[in-house]
């Protein structure tokens, strides 16, 4: 069943959110060793696009395919290949940095410690995630993406809350992942992404507010 060549494709994606239309028939393709950087002003649908690609949201039109099959049909395979870093870090505030990683499926203690070291949290191993700073929590969430050893990373604003060193670290980790044949789609509104990535500027949303056919009456 599996196509010989792993790839993520999307075509014709359009999402309607209230009075706005996002993405307007967007298409993209990622193959091993490729990265796409999503850019565009706030509210243009970067997060929505990532959620549609991941399969968290369903687009109003268009399709997302993993290895040629719609993701709804190959959901377990697709989600087993995917590492997600959302706008929320997905960490348990009550657990230590170490436990947040080590309690994941199939993660050894040694691997968890190694990953914490790589993201610069070696000194915070026994600190509860709730007591870490926002930047440290972002690093911890990235450590989990690293540990997952998934082939495609979908990262929503991976640079958020990070200091200069942290952003350099993320760039290095993303570049390593892509160089090693991984796939990557990430959104970014900081100045600098990674050199290996193709830029994809999302168009601004279309407002339906002026449409006389729309009876929403929600124009403000």
């Amino acid at each position: 069943m599996r196509a010989p060549h792993e790839r993520l494709e999307a075509e014709g994606l359009t999402v309607e959110r209230g009075d706005r239309q996002l993405l307007h028939g967007l298409a993209l393709m990622v193959e091993p060793g490729q990265a796409i950087e999503l850019t565009g002003p706030n509210g243009c649908g970067k997060t929505t696009l990532l959620r549609v690609l991941a399969g968290l949201c369903v687009a109003d039109t268009g399709s997302v395919r993993w290895c040629g099959s719609p993701i709804a049909e190959v959901r377990p395979e697709w989600h087993a290949a995917l590492a997600w870093l959302g706008h929320l870090d997905g960490l348990k505030a009550e657990l230590t940095a170490f436990d947040n990683l080590a309690l994941e499926a199939g993660v050894s203690a040694a691997a968890a410690l190694h990953a914490l070291g790589r993201v610069g949290l070696a000194a915070a191993v026994e600190v509860e995630a709730g007591r870490l700073s926002a930047g440290q929590r972002r690093r911890l969430a990235l450590a989990r993406v690293l540990l997952s050893a998934r082939r495609i990373w979908l990262l929503d604003e991976p640079f958020t809350a990070l200091d200069v060193d942290g952003r350099a670290l993320v760039r290095r980790l993303m570049t390593e992942h892509v160089t090693a044949g991984g796939m990557l789609v990430y959104s970014n509104h900081h100045d600098e992404g990674i050199g290996a990535a193709r830029r994809l500027a999302l168009p601004p949303p279309i407002e339906f507010g002026a449409d006389p056919g729309g009876t929403g009456g929600r124009s403000t």
Binding site: A54, G55, L56, P76, E77, H79, A80, L82, W84, G86, H87, L88, D89, G90, L91, K92, A93
Partner: peptide
């Protein structure tokens, strides 16, 4: 509530398990 607020819910949705 905790899962929905800290983003764990999204990770459950993206788990390969049913």
């Amino acid at each position: 509530r905790a899962d929905l607020q800290d983003g764990t819910a999204d990770r459950l949705l993206l788990s390969p398990a049913p």
